[in-house]
Simulated assay, not measured.
Amino acid sequence: MARIKPQALLQQSKRKKGPSRISAVTVIFYFLILALVGFFLFASYRHWSSRSRLQSEDHLSVSEGENTFVDSKKSELPGYAVLNTSKGSIIIELYKESAPEVVDEFIDLCQKGHFKGMLFHKVIKHYVIQAGDNQGSGATEDWNLRGKQHTITSMKHEAFMLGTSKGKHNNKGFDLFITTAPIPDLNEKIIVFGQVIKGEDVVQEIEEVDTDEHYKPKVSIGILDVTLKQKV
């Protein structure tokens, strides 16, 4: 029996202990597994980051929606009133900021048709025309007498202002005054809540009608209806 040389045995032992080669199929298999795991992690990250972004946007949109709702409530209030009279239309800008409570009451009465058919029962030339529920003869005449004494020295307001009497309206009704000339110390007499911006000629036409000794028009002139508008 032939003897195997020690050098040959050593080489044979190294060949047995050496690492076996990994097949290409195994490499592809492990690569696919790693790719699937990476894709799953990336998809999970995209999902949760997108969900977090949408939640923050929803919260922001809700907050903005609430602010828009509040602002829209303010903007929804009519800013103008059109008094359609038997002589023509008078367009009035309402002072929503300076007299909010009176404007709210006026708008509410307009929506209820309160002023429909209401007459101008006092007409004082170069001073004021009056319509409304309070048809007493003392107040406007007193304005006229006291006002003319101080017209030159104390003019605080221009013509074509819309106002109503001070005091509780539920006691004497809601009356309307449109000035046709500057009235001294107007704030002591009425609450101004608007101004005529179109239809001054109609106001002047009403002002020129014939009246009796109590400043009551001899021919009836009234408000047909009132239309509220956001813009004109």
Rank of each mutant, 00 (worst) to 15 (best):
Y215F: 15
V192C: 08
F115D: 09
L77E: 06
G167H: 07
S49I: 04
G117T: 04
N171D: 13
K231I: 09
S50P: 01
Q204I: 12
F193A: 00
T85I: 08
K216P: 02
K96G: 08
A43C: 01
H169W: 15
A81R: 07
F193M: 05
K172P: 04
K73I: 05
K122M: 05
H157P: 07
V37T: 13
I206M: 12
L83D: 05
T180F: 08
D71N: 14
V232E: 05
A8M: 10
P184S: 04
R146K: 14
I197E: 01
L176T: 07
D175L: 06
G65M: 05
V128L: 14
E64S: 03
G138R: 01
E93P: 01
V62D: 01
L109G: 02
R3S: 15
E208R: 14
D133V: 14
K229P: 03
F29M: 14
R15H: 00
V202H: 10
V102G: 08
I124W: 11
L54C: 01
I206D: 03
I33H: 11
L119R: 13
K112C: 06
Q195F: 02
G65Q: 02
L83W: 11
K231A: 06
I28Q: 06
G194F: 05
V123Q: 06
L54Y: 00
F39W: 10
I178T: 05
I91R: 07
K17C: 07
S52Y: 06
H114V: 12
T211M: 08
S61C: 03
G163S: 10
M1L: 13
S89K: 10
Q111V: 10
K172V: 12
L41C: 12
K172C: 10
F193Y: 03
S165Y: 04
S49N: 06
G199K: 02
C110M: 09
F39K: 06
F177M: 08
K14Y: 06
K156S: 07
E76A: 13
S52M: 00
